[in-house]
Structures are given as C-alpha cells and as structure tokens.
Design a protein around this nucleic acid. Sequence first.
RNA 1: GGGCGGGUAGCUCAGCGGUAGAGUGUCGCCUUUACACGGCGAACGUCGCAGGUUCGAUCCCUGUCCCGCCCACCA
Length: 922
Amino acid sequence: MTTELAKAYDPRETEPRWYRFWEENGFFTASADPADTRKPYTIAIPPPNVTGSLHMGHACRTTFEDVLIRYQRMCGRNALWIPGTDHAGIATQVVVERQLAREKLTRHDLGREKFIERVWKWKGESGGRIMQQLRVLGASCDWSRERFTMDEGLSRAVRHAFVQLYNEGLIYRDTRLVNWDVQSQTVLSDLEVENEENVQGELFDFAYPIEGGGEIVVSTTRPETMLGDTAVAVHPDDPRYTHLHGKHALHPFVDRKVKIITDAVLVDPKFGTGAVKVTPAHDWNDFATGKRHKLEEINILRKDGTLNENAGPFAGLDRFAARKAVKAKLEELGLARGTKAHTLTLPRSQRSGTVVEPIISTQWFVRMKPLAEPAIAAVEQGKTRIIPEHWNKTYFHWMRDIQDWCISRQLWWGHPIPAWYCVPCEHTHVALTAPQACEKCKGPVVQDADVLDTWFSSALWPFSTLGWPDKTPDLARFYPTDDMETGYDILFFWVARMMMMGLHFMGEVPFKRVLLSGLVTDERGDKMSKVKGNVIDPLDVIQGATLEDLLDKARKNGAKDSGLDYLRKTYPEGFAAYGADAMRFTLLSYSPQTSKIALSIKRIEGHRNFANKLWNAARYVLMNLEGHGALATQQRPAAKQFANQFILSRLGATIETVRAAADDYRLDEAGLALYHFVWQDYCDWYLELSKTLLQSQEPGVADETRAVLLHVLESALRVLHPMMPFITEEIWQRVPKAEGLGKTIMLAPYPEAARDGMRDLEVEREMSVLQAVIVAARAIRSERDIHPRLTLPLTLRADDAAARALLQREQEAIASLCKASVSVEALAGSASVDNSATSVAEGVTLVVPLQGLVDDGKEKERIERQLQKLEKDLQAIDKKLGNAGFVDRAPADVVQKERERKAEIEHSCVQLREALAKLQKV
RNA sequence: GGGCGGGUAGCUCAGCGGUAGAGUGUCGCCUUUACACGGCGAACGUCGCAGGUUCGAUCCCUGUCCCGCCCACCA
C-alpha cells in the first residue's frame, strides 16, 4: 500500500479503475447474501429505458438510489436493489417509431416477423450500452437479471393477473369512444394523450336546412365530423328553437335525417348559436349525448385517419383534406355561415405527436374505482409514505377522480391479451392457456390480436419480478420493498397503478416509501429535448467534451439552430472533465422538494473543486504521516490539544447531521454539511492549525496530531463515501488503516458520532472566539494593504480572565494563522497606543500599532464604518428591549440573549470610540 | 374552470416565528512547500405586493400579481 497520491487530481483516472475493481470483486450485486437471513433494506430500481442514451433523469435517480443503498450497507444492513425487467412497450415504441421514421417506413411495410426481429436486436444493443453508462456513474447494481421483455415468468404473471381481474369482474370488454392515434394505429389511454394548448383555430358556422323549411345554424372546429352527425341539440328552455323541437334537419351530403333534440347537459344556450351538432362516434360529449338519446353512432374514419364509405362523396380523403373539402362544398351549397377565430386545445398522442381522434371501438378496460379505494386508504394510513409529502394531494386528487383504464393496444409488441374468441359463435374465452376449441360450440378459436398497455405489466412489477404468482422465497423476503424512487412524472402512469395492483394481488402495499425526484432541466429551466438541442449527456459532463463535441451530438439528434446557439452561448468552452463524483454530488445537492432541477454546470464545477480539495487535503495528511510508522487503529485517538479536540468535536457534529439528514432522505442537507466540514472545518481551520502542532517539540503533541489528522480524514471519507464513491475509495485505499476493515470502503462501517467523533461544546465555543479574533486581525491586515509577508504586531485585550487565558494558551495558533506576534493583556489599565488599528471581536479588543504602515484617514473611515454598523444593530436591540410587550411576553432566554448582545455591542462601541478619539488627537 | 408548486444577493438555490445563508459571479490583496480546481479579505438583499395574527413575520393566515406544472373542459 503506497501512501503517495498522484500529484494532480484527475477524475478520469480514478473512475474506470474503481469501476473495474468493484466488478472484479463482485460488488455489483443485486442478489442478497444467502447467508444473511435478516430482512434486507430494499429499493426498487426500474430498468433503464431503452431509447439509446443515458439521460440526466437516469443519472439523477440512479445516483439517489445508489447513495441510499451504499449508506444502508455501510450502516450494517443487507441492502440491495430489486432490479426490474419489464417495460416492454413505452421505450420500444419510442425507439421503434424513431427508427421507422428515419427509414421512412411504417411497421406494416416491414411485416410483423421482420419488424419484431429488428426491434429486439436494437433494444439489446442500446440496453447494454446504458448499463455500461450507469456503472460509470458508480451504480453498484447488477443488471444481469435484466432480460428484455417477453420473459416467460413475467408473461405468466401478466396472464394470471388478467384472468383473475376478469373473473373478479374488474376487467371487461366494451364498445366505447377511445383515443385513436392514426399514425401508430393504436388506441391510447387518457394519460397518453397530451393537450396542446392555445392553438389558433377557427370556429366554422354552417346551416342545416330544416325539413319543411327554415334552417338551424351550428358551429364546429372540425367540419368533417358533420358527416357523422345524427342530431342537432338545443337547450330545452331556449325560446329561439322551441318551434323546432322534434323536427328533422336534412343532411346535405348523405341520405340521412338529423333529428333536433333537446339536451340541457350538452348545450350552453349562451355559447355560439345555442345549437350543437351531435357526432356520437367522434366526440366525447356527443357520445354521452348519443347514449342519452339512443342516437345512431356513425363511424366515418378508417384506422389510418382517412374517411370511410359512411362519408359518402368524401370517402377516401384524409381527415384534414376532408375538412377543407366539406367546408368548400358547404360554401358551394350556400350553407356556410362564416368563420370566427377560436383558441382551442388539441389532443395529441404522447408517442407520435399526431392529433388524436376519438373513435368508437371495442377495447378492454380495467374498472378502477374498486382498485383505487384501498390504494387511497394505504397512503392515508401511512402504510406508504410519499416523499415529499405535498404529492399526496395530487395522488389523492387523481385517485378519487379516476376513470376506467383502457388497456388494450393495437401494437405488435407487448404482452398478448389472454382472450380467445370463437369464430362461429363469437363466445369469449379468457384463460391462462389457449383453449383447444370453443367450450360452447366446439368451434375453432382465435386469440385477441391486441396486446396490453405496457403499464399494465409494469403495474405488476413489484411482485411479478419476484416470481409471482408462485410463492417464491424471493417474494416472501423482498415484498414489500422499502423504497421506490422515481420521477414525479410517472406518479399516475406507474406508481399509482403499482399501488393498486400490489394491494389487490398481494394484499399489501408494494413499497413503504415513494421518493419522488424532480425533473432535470437545462440551466434556463426548460425541459431537455433533443429537438431543442439542450440535452446534456451526463457522460459529457463526467468525461469532458469540447463545444464541437456538444454541437455534433446535438446536430445528430436533430437539434434546431436555436438549440445550437444556446449551446454556443452557454458553454463556449464545452465541459472540463468534472468526474462522476462531482456529477453525483451535484444531483444530490438539490432539495428533494424541488420539482425542477435546473442543472447548473457551475455547481458541478464547484463540486469538482471540492473533490480536488479533498484530494489535496489527503495528500497533506499522507505526506505528514510518512516515516512515522503505523498509527492506525480503529479507535478514536485521545486528544489533549485544543485544535485536535475541536476537529473531533466537529466530526461528531457532522456525523450526527449527516446521519439524521440521510435517514430523512435529505441528501442535500447531508451533502452541504459534509462540504462545510471538509472544506472549512477540516481544511481551512484544522489543517492550518495542525501545521504548528506538527512542529511542536513538546513530547506527544505531533504524534497526537498525526493520529487525529488521519482519523478524521479516514472517518470523513467513510461519511462521504455514498455521495462520492470514487474519490473516497481511491484515497481510502491509500490511507493507513486498522486491520479488518475489509478490502473496500463500501463495506467499511459508517461512522458513528459517539464512537468516531467527540462532541465538546465548550471547545467549539472557545474556537469560535479564536476564529472571530483571527478573522478580525486578518481584516485589519487586508484593509490596510499590509503585505502578507509582514508580521503583524498584535495586542489582544480582554476583561475576562478566562478569555485571556484562552488567548494566552492559543497564542501560537493565533500567531501562525494571522502571521502575527501576539501579546495578551488585561483591558483595564492597558497603555494606550497611538497610531494603531483597533477592532473588537467576541469581547476581545485587537490593537495593532502601525507606525508608518497606515494612513490615519483610512483608519478613521474604517472605524467609523464599523461603529455605524454596530450602532444600527444597537438601535434595533434597544427598540426591541424598549418594547414592554417583548420583555414581558417573549421567552426569558430570548430576552436574556438580547441583553447580552446589547452589552457586548456597547462594549465594542466604547473601544472603538476610544480608538477614534485617539486618532483624531494625533 | 379545478388543483399543486414557486417568486429570497447579478445567476442557481437553501432556510421558514426571535441578529438574512450557501455555491457561483464581482472587487481588492497574495504564487506562504496540501491545494491557483487555491488562500485571505470585501461588497452585495424593504426575502413579489397589500393587509392581518403576534411582543416580534422572509417564515403563519387572507387577498393580490406574476411564473411553472398537473387535471378537466372547449359546438
């Protein structure tokens, strides 16, 4: 074991090395230690999606999960990931559609067999790449259980779930209006439809001639749907139309009469003409209206979005072409009544982006209300905690207003629906295996050609991946999972449905906590999108990239010019190699409350600098240990020296803070505490103080200091390890350690405040006095432009004997940290020093005689400034203490504290005024 | 229309009843053998606006204005 660290810190050198080490030594593991029979800490980890690149979202979630796993493991729990293996559909769909678009193909062109072959191959390749990338980030998870869908076990679970729900009456088949994606040619669930708002459209008015004379004017944003109209509705109380009740209008294009109906639900008499065309087969409200009035439902669309034979003369036209044609024809017939600008919301497919058409179709649905109730109760009763808590409201809101879920999809990938139809008698069979023949008529059967929504199988994931429906040992041991960590964007899609299915099939919640992280955005807070060109690849941040690299990648992803400009403007130099540790630490540093993580490269750079700081501190410690034999024990060294006591106390405090924060999932707070401890307490104060102690001739002092330096460093590495796994491992391997700590820091025990630290509040208080004095002395030097090489003659005066004793005792430390010659004396009766700089800190008066070094005018100004500030504070305090209400009603300790502060400030003012008076005299 | 967040230093964000914090940026001084990916010091804020509760409000309540997101509706 060498004690020598390379001269410079380069994250690119440490990461691959430790990644290999972990892999070779079997630390990427998803399986529980078979010898350990305790209930382990488990975290559910979804598989990476398969779109071909690792994005910030994965980096963020993986990091969070990995930190929790490492932390729990170091705390002595058998902690592990439960990796998932499903997600057949969503990712595939994205991959496939992008690929097809690139080749200007539709899936129908390829044919089913070729198509599927191609998809699996592509998924396998990009999936492997992502696993590789996640490891670079430090995820200590084994993805070997990852198999891409169609896994027989999962398929079986899906069939079981479907059949059971069907038998319980919770799955049914019905003819209804559904969202149809004409490009992907499949139905979509409500959640897969995105609304594009504020689209500038037009409202087109036209007239239906009434049988027997007259007309009725209706408005529409989709004129082509009039081909499917079967009624015109008016409000029953609208006097304008009373005379038309029960009459019929004549359809101008097809041989059909359109009934005038009255409906108070559909019609708002104040909107437009107060008459509404009703198209039951292509509009949600009209469908409901049609049901109320038993209207005929006339479908006018084919699957590809062209009009069918019901459209009469317009058959064969695309829906948008038909829109124009219908309008033109109505103009021609003199039935058009003009257009108005109208702002509307367009429903678009989340997948293909095309405008969704509501059409009538027979699909499978899950009855949600009975499933939702227990899922609501579980969160209400705290069986599952959602963190941050404010998501509860959103969860409840959605759950209480839940609609039935359309689960069939007309795609070629995904889990087939275990339903068979008899060809002759149309009887439906739902079963685990294909029936040989129809049980009613013995006729031949065919399987439902549709597949299930990917989220249906995903909803089963917490138990299907553990062997359900069999009662496997894994299922008994690992269900429910402790933590489920994911982005809030799939709270409804996935989390809520897992809750429902878990409770239904297992009778128990699937996880005890749901941790919802924010969405990573660019620095402006805009969602990352390949088209916008603002996608930051975590690997570029980790390994470094030039601006050209970034631009190339963006171009390849089809970014617009404006996106390229954004990159040029924001990252003119590209990225330095900041390393995975800095990347991880930064992702963790955002508060979990935030729903938007506007990733700031500057912040990452700051954390890279932090890693460098730690690296150099370690170099310092190791340098000073050289030639001093083995010091390492697992015990905290006994400390007699003030500085050593101080840092052990701070270490204890930090461990307490970090553990409390981590237990509360506030990794941001944990990280901040560590950042300050390492940089400020350890490096800025303690390492500087140690320099004097290491020179000490007094027996034992230097040895004690070496032991504390090492102990605190080694402990800090362990505290920090989950958040910065690479650098801490690298340094830890080189630090002298006691035997038996294991071959990796991953398995070393997590520090404990009482064992590794030594809390001493009195020491910390004394230190804060010293710090204040030292800072004040440095300020005197800096503000007078006294060169750092000149020794500052510093006199410290204090009334309090204890304070004097402290200053006396730590004289050497003060001298070294301010490069001063220090003398301590009582305030009372001290000789006045002409031409000196004066400052007051924590009741200690600092005097620096400065003949020839300082200009009196500047000094006057400085003191006056300090006085002004103090007087302002004093005024505020006086106002408070002068308020009878405050003195009477505020807690005694608050009042007392205020009084003490007042006394101290007054004392400071007196000192400063004296100094000022002296200056004016000169 | 309903709901949920957010508005704090130039920027990115913590804090959330008792003297306003961090990182980054800015301005000085310093290449002192752990570190210039650094050290030391400084400047910077009517904590969106208006009321209320309170001895005391950035924090709690009410209203209001912006910004973001989600859900629903849209002839």
